[in-house]
Amino acid sequence: METWYDTPRGPIFAQTYGDPSLPRLLMLHGFPEYSGAWEALAPRLAHRFHCICPDQRGYGKTGGPDDVAAYRTSALVADMAAVIGDEPLTVLGHDWGASVAYGLAMFRPELVDRLIIANGVHPVPFQRALANGGAQAEASQYIKVLRKEGSENRLAEDDYAKLLQLFSAKMDLSWMTPDRLAAYKSAWGGAAGLKTMIHWYRASPLVVAKPGESLPLPDLPLDKLHIAQPHLLIWGTDDTALLPEATEGLEAFAPNLTRVKVDGADHWLAHQAPEKIAEIILDWTTT
């Protein structure tokens, strides 16, 4: 079902699954996806949850302004807080969606009962890994490329050839059927659509060191970055974009953390192993 949510910054589009009377599950996609990222997973959860799958600000039908400041984490968190309303729910985030999910859990904890992250990272362990110049910094050099002016034009050229190359680099994209690819291309909306998606990278304060070098850590408000809620981290072990070192020390910020590994899956685990991911979520949310 298609739904629009009113927010102070403009309407948010969402696909929803399941009976609205069921407990709610907010499912937050990353880059370069959209609400359709959950089409394999959400139906497997819809007997237990009312799944809300928005196009986040700057993506898909929601769109967004051509203003980098509009994509700061605080603004993106405010968008999803408006979608949630007054009653707390379970939040699931992947990739950049994990950043918003963590932001909700940290800064709007009254809205989050439980936090589920699927191959996404907490800001402190991730920033530490990016700044030390090791394997994660090397894997994340693409962030600098995306932040460059006009990167959206290069990614949109030749029917998104470079975007698809980035999307699939060292990853299994066999789940991307021709119909799904057509839906993704429609959601991307050319260079103009990609621009607002990439603004998430431009607005981020993350500092990425060169491989083999190290940078001083930014001043982070460590005392405000804790997760009090029960927290499940699901990790596809073959991910080459986000590496295990990006989650090292997470327990210091999330004392109620449960880690579950999914062997044979990579960054796109919700597409590659939706039955397994659904089983993990359903088991964890009933304990």
Rank of each mutant, 00 (worst) to 15 (best):
A183V: 06
W284C: 12
W268V: 00
L111R: 10
S168F: 10
E245I: 08
H226V: 13
L194V: 08
L173W: 06
D283T: 14
Y34R: 01
E110Q: 15
E2A: 13
I12W: 03
P244W: 04
I280W: 06
F167V: 02
L181E: 12
K61T: 00
A82C: 03
E245Y: 03
H226Q: 11
S21P: 02
I281M: 02
S21C: 10
T16S: 09
G58F: 04
P54I: 01
L111K: 14
W235V: 14
G85I: 12
A270I: 15
Y34P: 00
M197F: 00
L92R: 07
I277Y: 03
A37F: 11
V112D: 05
T247C: 11
Y5K: 07
A105C: 07
P11V: 07
R48D: 14
H94P: 04
Y59S: 12
S99F: 10
I116Y: 08
K276Q: 14
D266R: 07
K144N: 13
M171Y: 00
K144C: 01
R259P: 04
T62K: 07
E245K: 08
T73V: 12
V83Y: 12
Y184F: 14
L104Q: 04
A252G: 01
E39D: 14
R180V: 11
P216Q: 09
M176D: 03
E2R: 15
R114E: 15
A101Q: 08
A191H: 09
L166C: 03
A156D: 11
T196L: 08
K261I: 01
R57C: 10
E279L: 07
R259L: 13
P65L: 10
L26M: 15
A98N: 08
D95W: 02
P230G: 09
L76P: 09
R154H: 06
L164W: 13
H47P: 00
P65H: 05
F13R: 03
P218E: 04
L130T: 11
S140Y: 12
Y160V: 12
G85H: 11
P54Q: 06
H50C: 08
D263H: 13
E251M: 09
D238M: 13
E157Q: 14
T286W: 03
D223I: 08
K210A: 15
K261F: 06
V262L: 14
G58H: 01
R154C: 00
A137W: 07
A137Y: 03
P109R: 13
G264V: 01
W175R: 02
V100M: 10
G212V: 13
E39G: 02
F49G: 00
L41G: 11
P20Y: 12
V262W: 08
W200E: 00
A118H: 11
P221K: 01
H231Q: 15
G264H: 01
L89K: 09
M106K: 02
A183P: 00
F13S: 02
H122K: 04
M106G: 03
A169V: 12
L173A: 15
T7Y: 01
D239S: 13
A82P: 08
D172F: 10
L166A: 13
S186Y: 04
P221H: 02
V100Y: 06
F13M: 02
P88Q: 10
V260C: 11
L26P: 01
D223K: 15
S174A: 14
E152I: 01
I281G: 00
D86P: 07
L25H: 13
A101R: 07
